[in-house]
Simulated scan of single mutants.
Amino acid sequence: MTALKCIALIAHDQKKDDMAEFARRHEAELSRRRIVATGTTGGRIKEACPSLDVTRLKSGPLGGDQQIGAMIATGEVDMLIFFVDPLTSMPHDVDVKALMRLATVYDIPMALNRATAEILLTPGALGA
């Protein structure tokens, strides 16, 4: 398996603190990857880990989820880590579902919670 090139990081509002802490915990591993993130999530990650090079896209409701979906479809994103809040209704839920569908169609590793994300970033877990 080839080394991962790009990881997309997204978190719903109630999960942004979890994502920032996750990034802090895995800063060394993430620093070896290209990171793209939706706008607000990317900002929170940069606050937590100033040394990380994070490309911030639009916020999710303003098209950031779709931007990442397009990057998945063109082969620019190799892994999706999306901390989903299953207890809060999302007005842009159709965009979120489309993003998860694209990750499935293009067969990239996808974590929707911290437990799975921890496994995906375990050194050697994906041959990276």
Rank of each mutant, 00 (worst) to 15 (best):
L57D: 01
Q66R: 07
G64L: 01
R101Q: 09
G39E: 00
S59L: 01
G63H: 08
G43Q: 09
I72S: 09
L9S: 08
Q67V: 00
F22I: 04
Y106E: 09
L120H: 02
G43C: 02
K5L: 01
G75H: 11
L80Y: 03
D18H: 06
L87Y: 08
P91E: 14
M100A: 10
V105R: 15
A11Y: 02
D85I: 00
T55F: 05
T122Q: 10
C49Q: 00
D17H: 06
P61N: 14
R33E: 07
P86R: 08
A103D: 04
A8S: 06
T40C: 02
D13I: 08
E27I: 13
D13N: 13
F22C: 05
A111P: 07
A115D: 15
N113L: 11
M71F: 02
P91L: 12
M19I: 00
L9R: 07
L52C: 11
K5Y: 05
E76D: 15
K97C: 06
A111G: 13
F22V: 06
L52K: 09
T2V: 08
G60R: 04
V105D: 14
M71S: 03
E29Y: 15
A73G: 10
R101C: 12
K97Y: 01
A98R: 13
L102D: 04
L30M: 07
K16C: 09
L121F: 03
V94E: 09
V94L: 12
G124C: 06
I10N: 05
R25M: 12
K15R: 13
Q67L: 08
L62R: 10
R33V: 01
A111T: 02
L57T: 03
R24Q: 14
A3P: 11
A103N: 08
V84E: 14
F82I: 07
S89I: 10
I72N: 04
K5Q: 11
A3L: 12
R33T: 08
A125Y: 02
V36F: 00
K15A: 09
A8H: 05
D65T: 03
H12S: 03
L9F: 07
Q66M: 08
N113C: 13
M90L: 14
R56I: 00
A115C: 06
K97V: 04
K15E: 07
V94S: 14
I81N: 06
T74P: 02
L4E: 04
L52R: 13
V77I: 08
P91S: 12
L99R: 03
K15G: 01
A128N: 15
V94T: 15
L112H: 13
M110V: 14
E118V: 05
R34A: 02
V94Q: 14
P50A: 01
R114L: 15
V96I: 12
A103E: 04
D95T: 00
A111I: 06
P61E: 02
A115H: 15
G39H: 04
A128W: 13
A8R: 15
